[in-house]
Nucleic acid binder design. Structure first.
Lengths: 259, 259
DNA sequence: AAGTGGTCTAGACCACGCC
DNA sequence: GCGTGGTCTAGACCACTTT
């Protein structure tokens, strides 16, 4: 049970004044309580919040939905609303393992391998890796968590020709370490793209969220030191778990790479 | 007026079957029509769609909201729902002007200067630019559009000391060209961060969207060839207008930059 | 003036988590 | 079995855009 501060004289559903709507007032009131740490852990139940702010449940849920979009709160399926933990900072260009950058930031990481199989590439992958659509690729799906909270589903496809016997390794561990130690890929290039997306089942289920939840989709094409693409990654992140960060790099150097 | 295809035998509000909910069925039906280009331009009115799919308006709006999160449709304030144009590809690391990369992709760009003033830095800016909190900075706000659709609000802060008389230039034009031609900054480094966010007024209004709409926040710290930070940018993008893209760069080179 | 989306209500019942 | 959030309805009125 959590008690929250709330000015009893405020009529949150009084929509007449200055085009300020009830859901916005409720949103701001709850946001204030979260930012000032008066609200932590789980929120009171929706029906309780309705009573507190004197609004209908759908109005309250509009406010909660926006707080969710802001990355302040999230829901566990049918169990309640919770204040979001801090975001993980992630540099998709950096040659660092999930284990490394999560522990650097004080998180407890874990990984579960969902599947491992041989696939034929879809159009996007065959074009990106420059392989024929009948080439066999090793495909693995993994879900990765920080502090017990699932944050990303990865869908990785590897060129068997480029990484012989890749399928025989333990692929729930760090791929970047495997590339370094077994395949001697110390120099790696990335093509990255990031966009806003929706998470649908079954990905949403793996992330303990709902069908249609907000996400961030990160796509990576990994190349060896000669520029040959050998790995295609799709990462579906919880939108509220992630801040993409990339530190200064010299534009000039990049131009030197294209002689 | 737009006619849409729709299997008349499907009862969209029959929620009993296989945990498939009405809003998900409506969402998929409309998405299919958009992807197959049977729906273009503006959608039928909400009340019309309610009748078509035999659902209540709030159920329909849940479906529309998810299609909006998917980046398939967007709304113009109280005028209707529209199919989204294609996304702009944007590389925040690249030393290219807005004019350049939009026209490269076949868009018609435009920029409006909203304000230009001298400010004192907030905590985040003073730390990023390593300047005292009493230092005066030139701050400009701009809104940029492609094909007449506002897509990003920029909030740029420049170090006056580093860019003397910056305030005297026409700041609705390209800053990167100004840096090159006037200040001879041919080599520039960036620190970038990207995260999901909500757009609130007045930013939401500049982007012709609603208070609480989804957005992407891109933060950039720009440094000169010596690594000295002289510009702090905050960019608030429509979430449905943008795909962040960054092409392959050698990790090794970056390590060489830190001797 | 008519039509649109935007806000809001007061209910109802369901599916699932937790005890 | 109780409490939670999840889905859904059928209205009402408002603010704004379009005609």
């Amino acid at each position: 049970m959590v008690t929250i501060t709330h000015d009893k004289t405020t009529k949150y559903s009084n929509k007449m004044s200055k085009n300020i709507y009830a859901y916005a007032l409720v949103r701001e009131a709850i946001a204030k309580n979260i930012i000032e740490k008066k609200l932590t852990g789980n929120l009171p139940s929706e029906r309780e919040l309705c009573a507190t702010y004197e609004v209908a449940r759908s109005t309250l849920r509009q406010a909660l939905g926006q707080l969710e979009n802001m990355g302040l709160i999230f829901r566990k399926n049918r169990s309640g609303w919770y204040v979001c933990p801090r975001k993980l900072k992630y540099d998709p260009m950096r040659h660092a393992s999930f284990l490394q950058y999560t522990t650097e930031q004080g998180f407890q990481p874990s990984t579960v391998l969902l599947s491992k199989k041989q696939i034929k590439p879809c159009k996007e992958i065959s074009e990106s890796l420059h392989v024929d659509k009948n080439t066999s690729l090793t495909s693995i799906k993994r879900v990765r968590s920080v502090d017990g909270r699932a944050v990303v589903v990865e869908d990785l496809s590897f060129s068997n020709a480029h990484l012989p016997e890749i399928e025989k390794h333990d692929l729930s561990l760090s791929i970047s370490i495997l590339l370094k130690n077994t395949y001697k890929h110390h120099k790696v290039l990335y093509d990255i793209s990031v966009e806003s997306c929706c998470l649908f089942n079954p990905i949403a289920q793996h992330l303990n969220t709902y069908d249609g939840a907000l996400g961030l989709k990160v796509t990576r094409i990994v190349r060896d030191q000669n520029g040959v693409a050998f790995e295609f990654d799709r990462e579906y992140w919880r939108h509220d778990a992630l801040m993409i960060e990339n530190n200064a790099k010299l534009d000039v150097f990049i131009q030197h790479l294209k002689p």
